[in-house]
């Protein structure tokens, strides 16, 4: 496709979508959101680029091949599962190494741990998976001739 409107909008929208996807990912722990939706939003950014500038350009923007992203994500999710198994004896159990308990019993510190790692894994699997499927479909259809 060769549309000035789409490519101009994409230049603004794609970075916004990527930032928004990270926001949704991080928000997911206590509110609606999370790795899956965040990953889909990030994938939309790359699909938009591929629609506006062509599949090659989108692959360049991704830098890493989609399936490698998905593989890394899967690895992170499995590691998050084993983290819980090793630390607390239950696979996928949530581990919060940076949470500290104050003297008055309230919680402090950073709520970052195995859950976030798992969600980040899901995020990457979805980006990689969706982009991989989309690029392959587009290649099969043969629309993309640049």
């Amino acid at each position: 496709m060769n549309s000035l409107v789409l490519s101009t909008i994409t230049r603004i929208l794609a970075p916004l979508l990527l930032v928004f996807s990270v926001f949704i990912l991080l928000r997911g722990h206590n509110d609606p959101g999370g790795g899956f939706i965040g990953g889909l939003i990030a994938a939309i950014a790359f699909i938009l680029i591929s629609k506006a500038e062509g599949r090659r350009q989108a692959m360049v923007a991704l830098r890493v091949r989609p399936l490698s992203i998905a593989g890394t994500g899967l690895l992170m999710a499995i590691v998050a599962g084993f983290w819980g198994l090793i630390a607390k004896g239950a696979f996928l159990k949530g581990i919060w190494p940076l949470i500290v308990y104050n003297a008055d019993g309230s919680k402090g510190g950073l709520p970052i741990g195995s859950i976030l790692l798992f969600d980040l894994g899901v995020f990457l699997v979805v980006i990689g998976g969706v982009c991989g499927i989309f690029f392959n479909l587009e290649k099969a259809v043969g629309e993309d001739t640049d």
């Binding site: 899956f36 998976g129 499927i133 392959n136 479909l137 099969a140 259809v141």
Partner: peptide, 20 residues
């Protein structure tokens, strides 16, 4: 829905491949 989405994407790709 998530699983169905994945399967649908695969089946779509397969149908396209079968057709061509």
């Amino acid at each position: 829905i998530v699983i169905g989405f994945g399967l649908f994407a695969f089946t779509l790709a397969l149908s396209l491949r079968a057709y061509s």
